[in-house]
Amino acid sequence: MTLSHPPALAVRDLCVTFQRNGCETRVIHDIDFEIAAGETLALVGESGSGKSVTSMALMRLLGRQSRAAVTGQVALHAATEREPIDLLQIDDARMRQLRGRRIAMIFQEPLTALNPVHRVGDQIAEVVRFHSGSPRRQARAQALALLEQVGIPEPSSRLDSYPHELSGGMRQRVVIAMALAMEPDVLIADEPTTALDVTVQAQILTLLKTLQRDTGMAMLFITHDFGVVSEVADRVAVMYAGRIVEEGDVEAVLARPLMPYTAGLLASVPRLERAGLPGERLATIAGRVPDPASLPAGCSFQPRCTFAVPGTCDSAVPALASLKAGRRVRCTRAHELIPAEELSPCPQTS
């Protein structure tokens, strides 16, 4: 993974620890990944894997009252800056400035990001005015252009709509318009299509890909759906119990998962191709996601893993080993389970 340009977003050793009932629980363990400009990294995992907490930590949205301690580095390399900015080191005022302008986020439920009593046009214009200070009239014109850009039909009349007058898909488009108003360098999308119907989901995914191609932003796309991953992402990182357990190019990971958890997850999705064929049982992963307060010894997945070897897998947390072609896998038995030619490690990028 030698990049000529520094990545738009580089996360190093990100840890999140929650204080609960007086005891500390680490929910995110040493996450590191990079996303280049124009690239999409999908962060996949089941509920409780820590994928959403990771995104909230990056945006510094874990409030004080949740008593979360976030450590590590989140280097944002904005196109306008010479040096990368560590989002975890700057003060709140600076963060507020960057949020929306250089790094933006969209959520699963667009209604949470929209104020129900204001017209959508005013809300978009407000964002524009807050960040660029452009006069009211100009901001409104910009809002109109944004609505057009995100494919809202009859944008000029939609400017005066209230959020509840729009469908779920239209609301998500409005939220995307607000997030992209300042052409951020990084967009974090947290399950943005999960609440939408498939036909609308297809529209939104296409829209996000088009916008990314036009603006060259880096995208961190959080989802639980491997179908969506294959649709939008260039690379995918699979999370389990607060750790990245596998990472690589989407096609490679989906075609040939190396970590037993990824393989199990992929196998448990019903296949459209097999629709209506005399059904065999779906593959399942025994047991369930562990409580972050009492993770099993060694590899977190080891109690559910069919390949686990007592004495090896439960002794230490395996390292996230780098393989060829930017692939990484966290499995002690990778050497036995993976053919040798895929294993030869590549030189680590700094």
């Binding site: 409780g48 025994a286 047991g287 369930r288 996601v289 409580d291 972050p292 307060a293 009492s294």
Partner: peptide, 14 residues
């Protein structure tokens, strides 16, 4: 089918 007993769940137990 394996028999599961209720154990702690991150958000909703104790």
């Amino acid at each position: 089918m394996t028999t599961m007993t209720a154990a702690g769940d991150a958000a909703h137990t104790r």
